[in-house]
């Protein structure tokens, strides 16, 4: 599991309700997966990261998260356990959990019940030490969209569209090679200017990362590619934009991008301690291929 709470399948109805819980952990993410849609309901929960780092709510702080309609009645507060480090999760009398209506229970009474022989048998069971799965390997991609069905988004990507004239799906209308490419259609009047967008979660920590792709823009295209870390608020590494046929990074205009032609872009950067605050970009125009 990538966070304290993980939501996997997003369904087209209210499929996940999470209320009246105390979530206490030390370090790492609270929410993993997709939690922003209306078909998940959270409320009257208490969250506390004992590392005291700011908690990331899907790219928002807690105030923004609640203004978005999430976690009504929830709080970010120390629950005041008697001794959490010793796994004593009884609550102090002035715990904010009580103000949420949380009703403590005697967890020492949980478990096997019945006659003494039965309970004795259960107590003989020796649990093996907890082992966590190793970190997944860094994500690598080689996506030519040829195996993705037309009309569908790439399976490994996280997709955000509003379906108000915008879309993000594989097409056979045009391709840099093979038959298929990914078509991203923007539309005026969307709720969020950052839609449509798609992203991956590579988890690259060290070494050198390279991201290459072919892109074909129109005159009105306004897009950006960005690399971020998992801090809250996130910090940006390599980033560039294309607007009005101009490719820029920060406030530096780098070059003109021809419209309605495939252009090859490569971005690379060292990670971890070897990153010196810079990155490299190469752009190959159609005439140079």
């Amino acid at each position: 599991m990538d966070g304290q709470l993980q939501r996997s399948r997003v369904e087209d109805h209210l499929s996940f309700t999470f209320e009246n819980n105390l979530v206490y952990w030390s370090g790492g993410k609270l929410l993993s997966g997709l939690w922003k849609d209306v078909n998940v309901k959270l409320g009257k929960n208490l969250y506390w990261d004992a590392s005291t780092k700011p908690i990331d709510f899907q790219g928002m702080n807690f105030s923004q998260w609640q203004r978005a309609g999430k976690d009504v009645g929830s709080v970010v507060a120390n629950p005041e356990f008697l001794a959490a480090e010793g796994f004593d999760f009884r609550l102090e009398k002035d715990s904010p959990a009580f103000r949420l209506g949380f009703k403590p229970f005697d967890f020492s009474k949980a478990g096997v019940y019945g006659d003494s022989a039965w309970i004795k048998l259960a107590r003989r069971l020796q649990y093996p030490p907890v082992e966590f799965a190793p970190e997944p390997p860094p994500l690598s991609l080689r996506e030519d969209f040829e195996t993705t069905p037309v009309g569908k988004p790439p399976a490994e990507a996280h997709i955000s569209v509003e379906n108000k004239g915008d879309s993000l799906a594989v097409t056979e209308e045009i391709a840099a090679s093979g038959k298929r490419s990914l078509k991203i259609i923007d539309s005026p009047g969307l709720q969020h200017r950052f839609n449509p967008h798609f992203y991956y979660t590579p988890r690259h920590r060290e070494g050198v990362t390279r991201c290459a792709f072919d892109i074909r823009v129109e005159e009105a295209t306004e897009m950006f590619q960005e690399w971020r870390d998992e801090a809250s608020p996130y910090r940006v590494g390599p980033s560039f934009s294309i607007k009005n046929g101009k490719l820029s990074s920060g406030d530096q205009e780098l070059m003109t991008i021809p419209v309605n032609q495939w252009v090859h872009v490569e971005v690379s950067a060292a990670l971890g301690a070897n990153n010196r605050g810079t990155w490299n970009l190469s752009v190959t125009l159609p005439s140079q291929r």
Binding site: G165, R193, F194, H197, Y199, T201, R203, A220, E222, V236
Partner: peptide, 20 residues
């Protein structure tokens, strides 16, 4: 910035437009 945890491609036009 030191690590890559989010790699995104964002269309932020406020117009009907397409890129591939």
């Amino acid at each position: 910035w030191k690590t890559l945890d989010w790699l995104g491609f964002v269309s932020q036009a406020d117009a009907k437009t397409t890129f591939y």
